[in-house]
């Protein structure tokens, strides 16, 4: 190996190392901080000095935080379930049936998913007050549909398009109605795509902030992002960094684990949809 190519290789691996460190360091540092207590917080530490569960106990002992965990779980699951239910049939129609205006409809759906959410905030606020669901989980479930539904429809449509035409035609010859084609032929083939899409939509709903902040007023109704954002100490000066980092780690670790497990599928889903998660 010549000197030059050795240098190239070293440069390449240096780049790789920089990328990995940049990507992972903030989370690593959050973990380090979450195990620190007292005055340790006020000296910068690059390595964990001790393993103290104090912050975790404080966060998990805080019933409103635990409550918001459950709120988030409930809201995200219901939103995703509802979206998938509507999206499966809709994406079949969009991917598989030729009709006039299909391209326009797809563009509209994409446009809705890319929508500035602030633009519907006022109207949604009125709707939610009118329905009497302000400051309940239903307010979030209703409003999250605006991004989970177009997203799931869009991604499932791209997956649905890739299923072979001839299988569907064979089913038509066998006498299958569109509903039978979806439920008995396509769904069994699509469940990996469903899991991926559902997971991505779940992450989106889990992380949402604007609606959750606006449509809740009491601590017990908050979702996790709002709870973390508004987690405060005794006084303005005293931001409880330890517990905040512990809470952050608690809500992030499951996501990271899921993402790493479904890594390949997620990459496929993200790029198929070409939509942000």
């Amino acid at each position: 190996m010549s000197n030059r190519s050795l240098l190239n290789t070293m440069g390449f691996y240096a780049l790789v190392v920089i990328i990995v460190v940049f990507a992972c360091f903030p989370f690593y540092y959050a973990i380090v901080t979450s195990f620190a207590t007292g005055t340790q917080l006020f000296q910068v530490q690059y390595w964990p000095q001790q393993l103290s569960w104090t912050n975790y106990n404080a966060v998990l002992g805080n019933s409103t935080f635990v409550r918001s965990l459950f709120n988030s779980l409930f809201i995200a699951s219901l939103t995703v379930g509802f979206s998938l239910l509507l999206a499966v049939t809709a994406s079949y129609a969009l991917a598989r049936v030729r009709f006039r205006g299909r391209g326009l409809l797809l563009m509209t759906i994409l446009a809705v998913s890319m929508f500035p959410q602030i633009a519907v905030l006022a109207g949604l606020f009125e709707l939610i007050r009118f329905l009497g669901i302000f400051n309940t989980p239903w307010a979030m479930i209703l409003s999250y549909v605006i991004f989970t539904l177009p997203f799931t429809v869009w991604v499932l449509t791209t997956f649905m398009r890739d299923l072979p035409v001839e299988i569907e035609e064979a089913a038509i010859v066998d006498g299958a109605t569109p509903w039978v084609i979806i439920s008995q032929v396509f769904l069994p083939l699509l469940w990996p795509a469903l899991v991926t899409t559902g997971l991505l939509a779940f992450i989106g709903a889990w992380n949402e902030f604007l609606f959750a902040l606006t449509f809740t007023s009491s601590e017990t109704q908050r979702t996790v992002p709002v709870a973390i954002a508004l987690l405060s100490g005794a006084s303005q000066q005293e931001i409880p960094w330890g517990p905040i980092m512990a809470a952050s780690v608690i809500v992030t670790v499951p996501l990271i684990v899921l993402v790493l497990i479904f890594q390949r599928k997620i990459v496929a889903g993200l790029t198929a949809g070409g939509v942000k998660g």
């Binding site: 990507a23 903030p26 992380n207 996501l255 993402v259 790493l260 890594q263």
Partner: peptide
């Protein structure tokens, strides 16, 4: 491994990233 690593910032909720970086 690198691909997994770069997925981490994406997976972290925005609010959590804001807090983490706010601390850093």
């Amino acid at each position: 491994f690198v691909r997994a690593a770069i997925l981490i910032p994406w997976a972290i909720p925005t609010i959590v990233s804001a807090k983490m970086w706010g601390w850093m």
